[in-house]
Protein backbone atom coordinates (compact mmCIF):
# COMPACT_ATOMS: atom_id res chain seq x y z
CA UNK A 1 0.00 0.00 0.00
CA UNK A 2 1.47 3.35 -0.95
CA UNK A 3 1.94 5.95 1.73
CA UNK A 4 1.21 9.35 0.29
CA UNK A 5 0.60 10.96 3.66
CA UNK A 6 3.07 13.82 3.89
CA UNK A 7 2.06 14.91 7.39
CA UNK A 8 4.13 12.16 8.99
CA UNK A 9 7.46 10.52 8.17
CA UNK A 10 7.47 6.94 6.88
CA UNK A 11 8.91 5.88 10.24
CA UNK A 12 6.02 7.45 12.15
CA UNK A 13 3.49 5.80 9.87
CA UNK A 14 5.28 2.47 10.22
CA UNK A 15 5.15 2.65 14.03
CA UNK A 16 1.56 3.87 13.87
CA UNK A 17 0.55 0.87 11.76
CA UNK A 18 2.66 -1.67 13.61
CA UNK A 19 3.07 -0.34 17.11
CA UNK A 20 5.65 -2.22 19.19
CA UNK A 21 4.93 -3.38 22.72
CA UNK A 22 1.30 -2.38 22.81
CA UNK A 23 -0.88 -3.88 25.53
CA UNK A 24 -1.29 -4.46 29.23
CA UNK A 25 1.30 -5.73 31.70
CA UNK A 26 0.43 -7.83 34.72
CA UNK A 27 1.77 -6.26 37.93
CA UNK A 28 4.25 -3.86 36.32
CA UNK A 29 7.17 -2.62 38.39
CA UNK A 30 6.44 0.91 37.26
CA UNK A 31 3.32 2.53 35.82
CA UNK A 32 3.20 5.96 34.19
CA UNK A 33 -0.09 7.67 33.38
CA UNK A 34 -0.01 11.08 31.66
CA UNK A 35 -2.21 13.36 29.57
CA UNK A 36 -5.88 14.23 29.84
CA UNK A 37 -9.02 13.89 27.73
CA UNK A 38 -9.25 17.64 27.04
CA UNK A 39 -6.04 17.76 25.01
CA UNK A 40 -6.90 14.43 23.44
CA UNK A 41 -3.87 12.36 24.42
CA UNK A 42 -3.62 9.85 27.25
CA UNK A 43 -0.64 7.53 27.60
CA UNK A 44 -0.06 4.67 29.98
CA UNK A 45 3.40 3.15 30.11
CA UNK A 46 4.30 0.02 32.07
CA UNK A 47 7.85 -1.15 32.81
CA UNK A 48 9.36 -4.36 34.13
CA UNK A 49 12.67 -3.82 35.97
CA UNK A 50 15.23 -6.43 36.92
CA UNK A 51 18.60 -5.61 38.51
CA UNK A 52 18.15 -1.95 37.64
CA UNK A 53 17.57 -2.77 33.94
CA UNK A 54 14.27 -2.24 32.14
CA UNK A 55 13.62 -5.69 30.72
CA UNK A 56 10.20 -5.00 29.23
CA UNK A 57 7.90 -2.08 28.46
CA UNK A 58 4.29 -1.91 27.28
CA UNK A 59 2.00 0.96 26.47
CA UNK A 60 -1.63 1.89 25.93
CA UNK A 61 -2.49 5.18 24.26
CA UNK A 62 -5.57 7.21 23.42
CA UNK A 63 -4.50 9.74 20.84
CA UNK A 64 -3.49 10.68 17.35
CA UNK A 65 -1.04 8.97 15.02
CA UNK A 66 1.90 10.84 16.55
CA UNK A 67 0.85 9.88 20.08
CA UNK A 68 0.72 6.20 19.14
CA UNK A 69 4.02 6.30 17.25
CA UNK A 70 5.89 8.14 20.02
CA UNK A 71 4.53 5.69 22.60
CA UNK A 72 5.70 2.79 20.49
CA UNK A 73 9.13 4.34 19.94
CA UNK A 74 9.74 5.18 23.59
CA UNK A 75 9.09 1.54 24.57
CA UNK A 76 11.62 0.43 21.94
CA UNK A 77 14.22 2.91 23.16
CA UNK A 78 13.83 2.03 26.80
CA UNK A 79 14.00 -1.78 26.75
CA UNK A 80 17.45 -2.96 27.82
CA UNK A 81 18.44 0.37 29.36
CA UNK A 82 19.37 0.94 32.99
CA UNK A 83 17.07 3.17 35.00
CA UNK A 84 19.68 5.95 34.86
CA UNK A 85 20.03 5.62 31.07
CA UNK A 86 16.26 5.58 30.66
CA UNK A 87 15.96 8.81 32.67
CA UNK A 88 18.19 10.44 30.04
CA UNK A 89 15.83 9.64 27.15
CA UNK A 90 14.41 12.96 26.04
CA UNK A 91 11.50 13.81 23.79
CA UNK A 92 14.10 14.93 21.24
CA UNK A 93 15.57 11.44 21.15
CA UNK A 94 12.10 10.02 20.48
CA UNK A 95 11.49 12.55 17.69
CA UNK A 96 14.87 11.85 16.10
CA UNK A 97 14.30 8.11 16.21
CA UNK A 98 11.04 8.70 14.34
CA UNK A 99 12.73 10.85 11.66
CA UNK A 100 10.94 13.95 12.93
CA UNK A 101 7.43 15.08 13.82
CA UNK A 102 5.36 18.02 12.53
CA UNK A 103 5.71 21.08 14.80
CA UNK A 104 2.09 20.86 15.97
CA UNK A 105 2.71 17.29 17.14
CA UNK A 106 5.80 17.94 19.27
CA UNK A 107 3.69 17.84 22.43
CA UNK A 108 3.08 14.14 21.74
CA UNK A 109 6.80 13.45 22.11
CA UNK A 110 6.86 15.47 25.33
CA UNK A 111 4.02 13.32 26.58
CA UNK A 112 5.97 10.16 25.73
CA UNK A 113 8.98 11.42 27.72
CA UNK A 114 6.69 12.34 30.62
CA UNK A 115 5.05 8.90 30.53
CA UNK A 116 8.47 7.26 30.79
CA UNK A 117 9.62 9.52 33.66
CA UNK A 118 6.33 8.95 35.42
CA UNK A 119 6.74 5.15 35.12
CA UNK A 120 10.29 5.34 36.48
CA UNK A 121 9.23 7.56 39.37
CA UNK A 122 6.47 5.10 40.16
CA UNK A 123 9.02 2.27 40.12
CA UNK A 124 11.40 4.20 42.38
CA UNK A 125 8.68 5.09 44.87
CA UNK A 126 7.75 1.41 45.10
CA UNK A 127 11.30 0.17 45.57
CA UNK A 128 12.15 2.72 48.24
Amino acid sequence: MSNVNTLYSAKVMEHFQNPRNVGDMENPDGLGHVGNPVCGDIMELYIRVKDNIITDAKFKTFGCGAAIATSSMVTELVIGKTIEEAMEISNKAVVEALDGLPAIKMHCSVLAEEALKSAIENYRSKSE
Partner: peptide
Protein backbone atom coordinates in the same frame (compact mmCIF):
# COMPACT_ATOMS: atom_id res chain seq x y z
CA UNK B 1 -15.89 6.10 22.52
CA UNK B 2 -12.39 5.37 23.85
CA UNK B 3 -10.52 6.30 20.66
CA UNK B 4 -9.34 9.44 18.91
CA UNK B 5 -10.34 10.78 15.52
CA UNK B 6 -7.03 11.38 13.79
CA UNK B 7 -5.87 7.82 14.33
CA UNK B 8 -9.11 6.63 12.70
CA UNK B 9 -8.62 9.04 9.77
CA UNK B 10 -5.07 7.83 9.16
CA UNK B 11 -6.16 4.20 9.22
CA UNK B 12 -9.05 4.89 6.86
CA UNK B 13 -6.72 6.83 4.56
CA UNK B 14 -4.45 3.79 4.37
Amino acid sequence: EYIEGESMILNLDL
